[in-house]
Nucleic acid binder design. Structure first.
Length: 614
RNA sequence: GGUCCCGUAGCUCAAUGGAUAGAGCAAUUGCCUUCUAAGCAAUGGGUUACAGGUUCGAAUCCUGUCGGGAUCACCA
């Protein structure tokens, strides 16, 4: 129904029939006419001026006349340079509105019978979720919804990094300093509780390191190994990892903990399960606040040994090769990457080994032809290598792999750092935005008490936070300033929610008054503010498609903002319920209804809910 | 040093190779007796980092330079 496509086809046909030149509709560029020119839609004629060897003006006139003869929607046209501007009849706008309203699945594509897996969040179990996870979760969720909308069956998964040195640090920290405390005894959310012991461990470890640096042994090492004019502070900063591995008492305890874990020591496993369960309880709360969930969790503790059979296969296929020490490698230097190790000399796996194994496991679990990994752009290189490796191994799903790489969320001072305490905690941030929404609601006299008001405020706050994160292109690094609260006015989630709330109130009133909406069919004299809205409504399905093709939810966010903006203008400029002519009133109410529906479904793709009142 | 990403208004961000590069925030100023003012409207703010090239047309594509970031671990 969107005239963009109709015009593409019309122009292509005109060129073929008038000049006998073949042209596919996709080659015809069509856009809404710029406001300063007369017309509704514009076809760009430059590209085939040469093809038919006529002047742009003559070509435009020929095609314009053709469209007047063949299309019942085209009322008139104008040619400006190489642009053909077409004005449509009121009938088109009425029918477009009717088409949008009569399709409850407007904007959704038919099912494809194809599965896509989206992996996102991927937390570590040694600390709570932070701002970076929020961006990750919102992107992952929005992508899942958008792929569902364009017809895929989406499987949402997270990989939980539940083993290794990090969680062992929390475990040692709790054993040594926890004195049997629990999240329940302390009234602390489980993930924060476990994270606190991780931080405490790091603090104690730092103290141990400071003390050790004064020892004779440390000083001897410094004198023997310092490089050039390296001073003591610089040397010990660089030496820290080695110290932790070779000299630290706490480090020894962590390594022993890890060994006992790998050996299946029951006491260690029990502690490990306990700590992880605390963390999962905390994550569950945060995920619920964010409104995201998963169809399946993959635990690293269950997958970290996978991939060795693939290494063996790769050796046989000649994709991998073995070095003298027994380690296994892949040589990707021909595509600009390096040689990468895929299995250690001692036969243990590395990061990429696990990822190969996990990919194959998922394929056998679900048979998904496509997998989307939502992971920060620090890991671009890793995923480039992983995907290329799987391709060379001839894995059947290899061409459907995509790394949805997103930029880090940074503070004005740079990256968030645990050690410097600059990490913006997910729960804290959510609480802060909710506080802000409540404060502003109170200021303007909106209700803030009672379960309904609570729910509305929650939706407004989350709408603001989510829109703030999603409206930026994923690839872009974004700056978040905790000093400046998240806006609730202007280009924001609440701005869009507000237009929906206005419409809702309007429609309720219309229903009470028993307005006859059928009169819309007699409406004539469509106004510019109405056309603006109708054009935007017509674009919606292609916006969702574009977002899916580009793995880019920000398209949908910015579209919703534009639509809401047009609606606010329409609301301000034209009487709706107060329109005196019944046809006009009915048409504008119907138009409002269509806008509300598209806004709600569009925002729903982003995980943003509409409040009932504001 | 190699590879990849980014550079648009004071700030945060838009702009399927198309017409005079747009929004919001911040600043100034109007608009509530009329469907909810978390709104609308107006004003100022730009050599799209820089230099070349491709073409009817470049913020967008190509080359180079400068600036910022990431990565190049038998860490995950």
């Amino acid at each position: 129904m969107d005239f963009t496509h109709t015009l593409q086809v019309g122009v292509a046909q005109a060129v073929e029939q008038l000049y006998g030149a073949a042209l596919s509709p996709e080659q015809v560029q069509v856009q809404p006419t710029q406001p300063e020119f007369e017309g509704d839609y514009t076809a760009v004629l430059f590209p085939f001026v040469r093809l038919v060897r006529k002047s742009p003006e003559a070509l435009g006139t020929d095609i314009g006349d053709y469209l007047l003869r063949t299309s019942r929607y085209v009322e008139k046209y104008q040619v400006v340079k190489g642009f053909l501007n077409v004005t449509l009849r009121d009938a088109y706008w009425r029918e477009l509105l009717q088409a949008v309203l009569s399709d409850p699945n407007y904007g959704r594509q038919p099912r494809r019978q194809e599965k896509v897996m989206v992996e996102y969040s991927s937390p570590n179990t040694n600390k709570p979720l932070h701002l970076g996870h929020i961006r990750n979760c919102l992107l992952g969720w929005a992508c899942s919804q958008i792929f569902d909308a364009v017809g895929y069956d989406v499987i949402k998964v997270q990989v939980i990094n539940d083993r290794g040195v990090a969680i062992c640090k929390s475990m040692v920290g709790w054993l040594k300093f926890g004195q049997g405390r629990t999240p329940q005894s302390e009234g602390i959310k489980g993930d924060h509780f476990v994270g606190d012991y991780y931080v405490l461990f790091e603090k104690k470890s730092q103290e141990e390191y400071q003390a050790w640096q004064q020892t004779e042994q440390a000083q001897a090492i410094y004198r023997a190994r310092r490089k050039g004019d390296q001073n003591e502070a610089e040397f010990f900063k660089a030496f820290k990892n080695q110290w932790f591995n070779e000299h630290s008492q706490l480090g020894t305890e962590v390594r022993q903990m890890l060994l006992r874990w790998e050996a299946g020591d029951e006491a260690v496993l029990a502690l490990w399960r306990q700590m992880n369960d605390w963390v999962y309880a905390g994550f569950a709360e945060t995920y619920a606040r964010l409104g995201v969930h998963f169809d399946k969790n993959y635990y690293e503790s269950e997958t970290y040994l996978l991939g060795k059979d693939i290494v063996e296969e790769g050796l046989q296929k000649g994709v991998f090769f073995k070095k003298e020490d027994g380690s296994v490698w892949i040589d990707l230097s021909d595509v600009g990457y390096d040689q990468k190790v895929v299995l250690r000399a001692d036969g243990t796996s590395v990061y990429i080994t696990q990822d190969m194994g996990t990919a194959r496991m998922r394929y056998s679990d679900y048979g998904c032809q496509r997998m989307i990994y939502v992971v920060a752009d620090e890991q671009n290189y890793h995923f480039a290598v992983l995907f290329e490796t799987l391709r060379r191994l001839g894995e059947p799903y290899a061409d459907g792999l995509y790394h949805l790489s997103y930029g880090l969320v940074e503070l004005p001072t740079g990256r968030m750092k645990t050690r410097e305490g600059t990490v913006v905690d997910a729960d804290d941030l959510i609480a802060e935005v909710e506080r802000l929404a409540r404060e502003q609601a109170a200021e303007r006299g909106s209700p803030v008490e009672g379960p309904e008001a609570e729910e509305n405020l929650r939706r407004i706050a989350m709408g603001a936070l989510k829109f703030f994160m999603i409206r930026v292109h994923p690839k872009r690094r974004m700056v978040f300033n905790p000093e400046e609260s998240i806006d609730l006015q202007g280009q924001t989630g609440p701005y869009i929610q507000y237009s929906w709330v206005r419409i809702r109130g309007l429609l309720q009133r219309a229903e009470q008054d028993g307005v006859d909406l059928g009169a819309a069919a007699q409406y004539t004299g469509v106004q510019p503010q109405e056309k603006e809205l109708l054009k935007a409504l017509g674009e919606y399905p292609s916006v969702v498609l574009t977002a899916a093709q580009g793995y880019d939810p920000s398209h949908v966010a910015n579209y919703c903002y534009q639509l809401a903006k047009h609606y606010h203008r329409f609301w301000h400029d034209l009487p709706i319920l107060h329109a005196t002519d019944p046809a006009t009133r009915a048409f504008r109410l119907q138009l409002s209804r269509a806008v509300a529906h598209v806004l709600q479904t569009g925002m729903n793709l982003l995980g943003i809910e509409m409040p009932q009142r504001m």
